[in-house]
Amino acid sequence: MVKRMFGVWKNRFQSLRNTLRFEPRRCCKVIIATAVLHNDLKQHNCPDPPMEEQNDPDVPMPVAGNNQGGLALRAAFTLQHFS
């Protein structure tokens, strides 16, 4: 169960799939920030991203569109949790 959760988390935040190339203090901040965002998405019943069977570096990541609703939600989340 824990292994699956880490897989979902890494699929949701592609930057966690590889080694974080920051100083340790910044790595901790990235991990905590993605954990907070992941937990918030779970609380709001957002579906988990599809699980990928393998880490193929040649497969391009999908590009997210310019979603104004998503931008507004992100701004509201930032104000609520980080101000």
Results as ranks from 00 to 15, higher is better:
83 S>A: 13
41 L>W: 08
70 G>Y: 00
72 A>M: 14
45 N>C: 02
41 L>G: 05
53 E>K: 06
74 R>D: 04
30 V>A: 02
55 N>H: 09
55 N>Q: 13
5 M>Q: 15
61 M>K: 00
17 R>M: 12
11 N>D: 13
4 R>D: 13
76 A>S: 11
19 T>R: 12
38 H>A: 08
5 M>L: 12
82 F>Q: 07
62 P>S: 06
52 E>A: 11
19 T>W: 09
69 G>S: 02
16 L>I: 02
73 L>G: 07
58 D>F: 05
33 A>N: 10
7 G>T: 06
13 F>Q: 04
82 F>Y: 11
2 V>E: 15
5 M>F: 08
72 A>Y: 15
58 D>R: 06
62 P>C: 08
48 D>A: 07
80 Q>Y: 12
75 A>F: 11
68 Q>V: 00
43 Q>W: 10
12 R>W: 08
40 D>W: 15
34 T>M: 12
28 C>Y: 09
29 K>W: 13
37 L>Q: 15
36 V>A: 15
76 A>G: 01
83 S>E: 10
25 R>Q: 11
3 K>A: 14
3 K>W: 04
52 E>F: 02
44 H>S: 11
41 L>S: 09
33 A>T: 07
2 V>M: 12
40 D>E: 13
73 L>W: 08
62 P>N: 04
3 K>V: 05
59 V>R: 01
